[in-house]
Design a protein around this nucleic acid. Sequence first.
DNA 1: CTGAAAGCGCTAACAA
DNA 2: TTGTTAGCGCTTTCAG
Lengths: 347, 347
Amino acid sequence: MPGNKITIKDIAQKAGVSISTVSRVLNDKPDVDDQTKEAIKKVIEELNYQPDNIARSMVLDKTFSIGLVIPNITNPFFPEVARGIEDAAQDKSYSVIFSNTDSKIKKEKEAVDLLLQNRVDGLILSISMENNDIIFELENKDFPVIQLDRNVPDSIYPSVMIDNKSSAYKATNYLLKKGYKKIAHISGPQNTFPGLQRKIGYKKALKENNMGYIKVCKGDFRKKSGYECTEKLLNDTKSPEIIFAANDMMALGAYNACKEKGYKIPDDIAIMGHDNIGISDLVEPPLTTMDQPKYELGTIAFEKLLKFINLNSKNEHLNPEQYPESQTLFTNLVDRESTKNNNLRKG
Amino acid sequence: MPGNKITIKDIAQKAGVSISTVSRVLNDKPDVDDQTKEAIKKVIEELNYQPDNIARSMVLDKTFSIGLVIPNITNPFFPEVARGIEDAAQDKSYSVIFSNTDSKIKKEKEAVDLLLQNRVDGLILSISMENNDIIFELENKDFPVIQLDRNVPDSIYPSVMIDNKSSAYKATNYLLKKGYKKIAHISGPQNTFPGLQRKIGYKKALKENNMGYIKVCKGDFRKKSGYECTEKLLNDTKSPEIIFAANDMMALGAYNACKEKGYKIPDDIAIMGHDNIGISDLVEPPLTTMDQPKYELGTIAFEKLLKFINLNSKNEHLNPEQYPESQTLFTNLVDRESTKNNNLRKG
DNA sequence: CTGAAAGCGCTAACAA
DNA sequence: TTGTTAGCGCTTTCAG
């Protein structure tokens, strides 16, 4: 394999022109004679020449690649987002380099550093709230960044996410309207934006309705924590009628706990989740949840990043006001069996 | 942001040495005076210098990145594989660029071309069996490739996958031992390696046991096809006692069909899947399936690719015998509720 | 309309 | 132990 790479030089030679002329036709520049253009194109075909993006990047100072930094592609929320990003990127001939960080600050830093060394044109970041350093360093350079799903407080970078607070607020209100009075919440980790905001939305709805019963168990977005919280909640003297989990994975953990303890869902205890991951309509009973537009989150994030990138190359110094705007998407309630409370209606 | 990039030149200047000396300390080369080395390191720190991998790639003819081409990251099988790959890659400071193809030949070609133009050091490919062109072109160049999960017939590239045939064979035998006599199969698409092989394994087991009942419905690995096949199978005059689906998604489609028709699983009809995707123990009843070591598939694929890459840079011409060896991983039966046939035991 | 040449940031001979 | 220099493959002035 080594040594047999076909370069612009080879094709220039074979076509009997200079490399600059070849470069011109490669980049569809004007001012090339039709005859020579055709001849060159033919040689390109014949030799099956593929331009070298690394060399182009070198001179253009642009790699046509972006970095995607997420906690864990194995978390069912992210594949759909990633697919949205990659589809949008592919459409513009952009490459996406992805890395998993498990929300560990150290890994986040390393991932971003490596991406930067690889000179990605921009970054889509879903990192912990504590990780200010990274963000602020990037901001100093006006480096194109879009925050996804989560965001770092005080960062001026645009973010693309759902309105977590109002989503949880909507969810809680819906449960209230259904007649539930004792609604407990299994929260997400409080150092993540969605975890924090959803809890706030939950509380807001209860307070506005003057509900006395407010109970939060701290989870971490993983199934196990949903399981454990549910065990606690069920053992409590004042156990809830329904558990609203901050995400579907924890709701499924709750399912397991209920099954083990012999509680029937939704008759003995109802459950609601958040995110509408693929599994949620496959479990028994199907889970009521708030649907997040995951794929769109991804495509929109990429489009904004691209705008940012192009903007960036034109100007010397950027004003945060010139950054693309943040965008908030809305969630939709997906009403399924897990909150069908027959008892309440009867009672 | 433009123009403020710190280069090796800047740090050479500030340290009062030549760029080659800086390069030496950057790459941990010997023969640098300890004093100057320290001084240079200090400047590197101060200026927060990050080496430019694009420039390095240019001269080293190595990008320290690989390409991952898969059908769809949204298919629950792939995130775990991808995570395995990325973890292994991260460990060696390699970047992974991924792209989705939906198993479309055109997209597969485009993805590989783009990756090649980006000069990835190697490729992990999960593409359709029909796509010979790509593979053979790559083979001509001895370009490092590992085939994952699927493979292209006649390709000499190493593959990392499970033994699909024997896995389906084991599964079917297990059902036979349980006392099931009428076992139907919902197959995967027959132009994919796993789809084809699993069907063969299923048939082999039945034939070896002289079973008269052999029934295959063609699916495409997606939930909907599992649903449709199940509808057909249940309506059949000779309906099966159990349906063995070639993957879990189709098995879940079968669940839906059964529920709609009022068939109880496993009492009225039993169901078995393949892959053990995350959902499979969350559905009701939990699904009996063959567990694939997805994460390991990923890590092993990367390790083999890395070996290939390093091998490749040393030799001029490679012999296929020098390629890393293919590896077959084994699946494990995960026995859950969906195949608990009480009727058979009683009868 | 076309070619020559500089240069992107870095590494690796080769000299000193 | 260190510096000078060529060159990786390409784009882009600047001349012709």
